[in-house]
Design a binder for these strands. Structure first.
Lengths: 358, 358
DNA sequence: TGCTATTATGTTATCGATAACATGTTATCG
DNA sequence: CGATAACATGTTATCGATAACATAATAGCA
């Protein structure tokens, strides 16, 4: 790493924070009155209010949210546990979360987990709780028994908890894309294009979402009186590299396949590439559809049909849900815990376009 | 949105937090002693320590970081201001930030900004400061005069501040990818492949990073005694759609162009696609190189040569830097403020491969 | 053996704000 | 006109922890 020297300034004077006391003193009132002005509380005379406001403005006073959180037992902060931020999906969800949180006046305290080190989950949640978060969003996929800790640990958590992309469970609030429905949409679209020999490249089947998409594929095939045997499906790991491998295996096992439903767009990209390499025309000989609608997919060659999941809406809904839970609890009421499904939608592009058939 | 009903549990009992007092009382010691045990302070007898630890374990006590932050004037929390989370670049950076923060024992308080509403910046920073963050990371690109507020506002900020992807400035700490060097690497590579008529599709030139990449292109061309006139460069807006348009204009204005350096991989993707559409062979007739090394780029057809910027390292370095600043200040010392450059690297794939020439 | 250093623990003040309560003043009304 | 309500403001307690200071018991040493 090279360093380029830039002339440096000196240490900024570490002036201390302006506190409510400073303001009170300067305005010649009690701290309580300042507090009342800051919180727009009634029972402050106009004259006093103006005087205090002027001092606040002049001194650049901002109440310490920290101190306020302590006394009010409420921080207006949500804990967010994320996984796989370096991928586009989770970060889009986070984007939705951040937006909604902002709108509703909450900040986000983030914690990323990089693997499912189950033993550490208590610590992660603990570190959020010790900072008084009002609620927690779990923005991490469900993989294998990654959510096994729920049974032991969740009951100890004393704040509202909302899961994103988790298999609905009794008594737990979750917000999820309807992946099954997505699988149905994709497969039905291929059927509607006149294809009958439809293969599937799934994500890792330890992922609940991958399993659901596959389930949608199979159910739709069977509903149409067609076959969906195991050897018409290969498992990838979401990466383009795995998609390449899976497709090559699939085409060997299923040579007269006329359509592929890939579990995500990255793997679909590899299908397009390998098909091209093998001289298979897309969509004429092979229709291809992906899942996720990543921004690039519209510019693949040919452009990729796909299932769009509205991750930003997902994130937004999760925030709204957790905030609702917080308020409900504040009022000591009981909220029904039900999972919310966000429906995905079909996006038709060249890779399945019937108009491009010969 | 469809809702699926799941049987609901009742309201979890809103048990209140276990405080240090509860522990002290249960263990028959003063709160101070509990505090000493929790902080591994010396001067606690073994016997007492064990007793307290047992009670802590049994009651599930966790100190309130909030209360601790208040008295210690130190929160072990960093403020992070992000922009464009829904894109892959910023979120990779954030990934690096999150990793490093975790390692160093800091949490992240996030605030996303969606537009450069300059008037709101004071508020954003204020909301972070009012939560006692120990430092702030500004993870947002510099666009036009988006950083003009620095002059007015930064001086009022009393905590260390580190900028990512900002033009180095006097007296301000920033960590940046050396975009100029990236432009040089890309262009030089094309020259090394024997190309001489090299066009450029830049990002929006209001972005400092786009400007730097372009500057690298031009300087390298001129260094090699070649031309880099204005009409050999078109401006895009980073999107694939804009890349398509820019390439089509560029090829009109510069018909005998034999290589393109695109400002990012999304735009490069469109170049590949449009070249294909026009029957231009890549790389034989036209070599193409991108910037960013998005995961998909290795699977484009042909696979895309590109410049990789190590965004995770960028984020990590920024965190290390801000933490260093925090510590330095704690000790009342002065730290030299210098910008740090993260060097990008060249990744050669098929789209510029000399071995694929006819 | 008496004095200081070390160890062990407790008490009180403090961080910056709001809650709860108290007090005084001005309207309102029968 | 006196009682009560509404307004205006101040005082003290509190949130959950640690800092700073105080005290007591033990140990080491001249």
């Amino acid at each position: 790493m090279l360093h380029i020297q830039v002339p440096s300034l000196t240490l900024p004077d570490r002036k201390k924070r302006v506190t409510i006391k400073d303001v009170a003193y300067a305005a010649g009132v009690s701290t309580q009155t300042v507090s009342r002005v800051m919180n727009n509380f009634s029972y402050v005379s106009n004259e006093t209010r103006k005087r205090v406001e002027a001092v606040v403005e002049e001194m650049g006073y901002r109440p310490s949210t920290l101190a306020r959180s302590l006394i009010q037992q409420r921080s207006y902060t949500l804990g967010v546990v994320t996984f796989g931020l370096k991928y586009i999906g989770p970060s889009q969800t986070l984007n939705g979360v951040a937006d909604a949180a902002d709108e509703l006046g909450y900040m986000l305290l983030m914690k990323e987990i990089d693997a499912f080190d189950l033993s550490n989950i208590d610590n992660i949640i603990g570190s959020l709780l010790s900072r008084q978060v009002d609620g927690v969003l779990w923005v991490a996929p469900e993989i294998g028994d990654s959510h096994a800790w729920l049974d032991k640990s969740l009951e100890k958590v004393s704040v509202p908890f909302v899961f994103i992309a988790m298999e609905p469970r009794e008594g737990i609030m979750s917000v999820v894309t309807d992946n099954y429905q997505g699988g149905v949409l994709a497969t039905q679209h291929l059927l509607d294009c006149g294809r009958k020999k439809i293969g599937h490249i799934s994500g890792p089947l330890t992922w609940w979402e991958a399993e659901e998409r596959k389930r949608g594929w199979r159910a739709t095939m069977e509903n149409a009186g067609l076959e969906a045997p195991e050897h018409h499906c290969k498992e990838g790991n979401w990466s383009s590299a795995s998609g390449e491998q899976a497709f090559n295996q699939l085409i060997e096992a299923f040579p007269d396949m006329d359509a592929v439903f890939a579990g995500n767009d990255q793997m679909a990209l590899s299908v397009l590439r390998e098909a091209h390499r093998r001289g298979i025309q897309v969509p004429e000989q092979l229709a291809v559809i992906g899942f996720d609608n990543i921004p690039e997919s519209a510019f693949f060659y040919p452009s990729l049909s796909t299932i769009s999941q509205n991750l930003q809406l997902l994130g937004k809904t999760a925030v709204q849900t957790v905030v609702e839970m917080i308020q409900t609890r504040q009022e000591n009421q009981i909220l029904e815990l039900q999972s919310k499904f966000i429906p995905p939608s079909l996006i038709v592009r060249e890779s399945t376009s019937p108009t491009r058939s010969p």
